[in-house]
Design a protein around this nucleic acid. Structure first.
Lengths: 366, 366
DNA sequence: TTGAAAGCGCTAACAT
DNA sequence: ATGTTAGCGCTTTCAA
């Protein structure tokens, strides 16, 4: 591990020039079979692994694609972990705990996007670098990444506009999820509003004329939340429902906020249907409805959005709209790869279909 | 996007030498304030982003750590996704589906390890590169990675021994999860067998003398499965239970295999307690027990292993042992970072505590 | 088919 | 405080 083995070492060992070593690695057919073998042996004997940095520099491409997320953890929340305790005996081998199923509602979304991105990157011969945006004043992480990759996928709104603009002067950038704005980046997104409108129609079809309908909105500054609201309100308007029959309460996408908002809602009397802007809040709403003695779906229809696992496992199972998470990741990398091949193609906007999953919570028993 | 901006461009623009530009970026205090400002302006105006390859080459370190997994997807299973349809109208914006909660039991484990690794890497100023092992004859992905990173975390058994040996000549390698073998790598792992023994004792304490106990084992070649079996059998022996009172059936860690194995088990009569080598199989077992009219935990005690979300959400909630997944990732990166600082320290083995989560499925109502 | 040599963009002595 | 310059390890013409 002292000094790394280089082309020079391999060349010397095989009795050839470094150019030949390079050729054996990159275009083996350009080298006579016997020499090729000699070089390969030297490579194996020395345990040679080419330096990615040197390659990247010479080739002017790194073979790496980047995926940049907004923080899926609060870094400051994570207690320091220090595995190097002085007294090994002080580390228990297990701990016993009574547990009532505390479940971390962490970003399954990002996990799956990541999977899709990795798969597609691999198919195209790239490896994937990931970075997470934390409260990092100058966004040094994403800039670091930009210097090391051939292209970057960033989640919408995870990078300030000016930083993004700067990075995109060096490498192509694809913006994932979130409303395509009229910028010059490639976008990959989903049809939030259309799908929500369709789901709303499905709900409205099941409630009586003049029923009370409620919308449980997300935070004001969420573009996804905004699009979902638009889809809902459009369907409601199209159904000729007056605004007085519609109540809107707002949460912040957490289950707890769904509970609070629903409690507020119930003060004015229970609605016949409750359309939530995401699954977590829908689950929170169901908690509160149940406590209030209301049955879902018999008394109140409830729907969510996202397709998280808890929505499927909950009783009643919650009707929702699933994001094509894996495909979002795959599509983003595809778009990036295409951009690398055609730097001057016009900006692309790819819109992926959502899947509406009809489950118990939205089916009024007839 | 034509030719990238380099130090030379910045230097020219600011009217200084490239060394000064480099200094402004790396040790700003070594440069007079006015020059520093001039350089910074040039950087901003040109949108300069330093090349990671060039840096890596000059510095002899990349600032990147690698995480290599065994394939969490069957690449060949994934249908090709091609987002560039000629007729955009052919792409639906949503699809409607009735759904009964099919849940993908994918590797939550790896997702969380990844999170932990990324967090710790970030704290230490590294970025993370990830790679997935697929049926790739010459393991080119992991070798590619090895050339691009300063250190590598590999999941146990995801890389053949000879390949690993070769990579470790270039960069330090940490092996994650799985039994530490007497090799020269650093290892980070958990106390599978001790925790399983403890859980088994908990179960045995609740069944009558002479009760029938069953173990639902994992695949033969799984080291984790093996260690869990050892913990179980050791506790059973220690309790003075004869081998005739213990039945062992084997599955492959999937829910379906848990069902099949349990069906086979029931042919010989229901056991009083069923200890499964993972959660999925425990859930499958509960499916079958319920269908057979047996109640959990009243008639049969059941336990799992892993701490997946479905185990917490299922009714009855399943007693299990949770892997400290995030901490595994964090610890692996810590060990790697330490190795980078002390290349000659003796190989470390870090063993993280497991958490036994007692839930309904293993508590005989008294 | 092979070798010599010129970069690739940066860092870090060493000079000034 | 700043500039000059020699690498870092590879790829890729261009010659032989």
């Amino acid at each position: 591990m002292s000094r790394s083995v280089t082309v020079y070492d391999v060349a010397a060992r095989a009795g050839v020039s470094i150019a030949t070593v390079s050729r054996v690695l990159r275009s083996p057919d350009a080298v006579r079979a016997t020499t090729r073998e000699r070089v390969r042996e030297a490579v194996a004997e020395l345990g040679y692994v080419p330096s990615g940095s040197a390659r990247g520099l010479a080739e002017r491409r790194t073979g790496v694609l980047g995926l940049y997320f907004p923080g899926f953890d609060a870094a400051e929340e994570a207690p320091d972990l220090d595995v190097f305790v002085d007294d090994p005996a002080s580390v228990p081998t297990f701990t016993l705990a009574h547990d009532d199923g505390e479940v971390h509602p962490t970003s399954l979304f990002l996990d799956e996007v990541l999977r899709g991105a990795e798969l597609e990157a691999w198919k195209r011969g790239f490896v994937l670098m990931i970075g997470v945006g934390r409260d990092d004043p100058d966004r040094s992480t994403v800039r670091d990444m930009a210097g090391r990759v051939d292209g970057l996928v960033v989640l919408a709104r995870s990078v300030p506009d000016d930083v993004l603009a700067r990075l995109s002067r060096r490498i192509p950038v694809v913006v994932l999820s979130g409303p395509p704005r009229g910028d010059d980046y490639d976008h990959v997104t989903v049809s939030n509003s259309e799908a929500m409108a369709e789901l709303t129609r499905h709900v409205l079809a099941q409630v009586p004329e003049g029923a009370r309908v409620a919308f449980l909105a997300g935070p004001e500054d969420s573009p996804d939340g905004g699009q979902r609201w638009e889809g809902f309100s459009q369907a409601v308007r199209a159904a000729g429902i007056g605004t007085d029959a519609v109540t809107v309460v707002r949460g912040d996408f957490t289950r707890e906020s769904g509970r609070r908002a629903t409690e507020g809602l119930l003060v004015g009397g229970a609605p016949d249907a409750l359309v939530a802007a995401n699954d977590q809040m829908a689950l929170g709403a169901i908690d509160v409805l149940r406590d209030a003695g209301l049955r879902v779906p018999e008394d109140v229809l409830v729907t969510g959005f996202d397709g998280i696992e808890a929505a499927a496992l909950s009783r009643p199972a919650v009707t929702t709209i699933r994001q094509p998470m894996i495909d979002l990741g795959r599509a983003a990398v595809q778009v990036l790869a295409r951009r690398l091949e055609h730097p001057d193609a016009p900006p692309a906007v790819v819109r992926l279909p959502l899947q509406i999953l009809l489950r118990e919570s939205s089916q009024r028993p007839s």
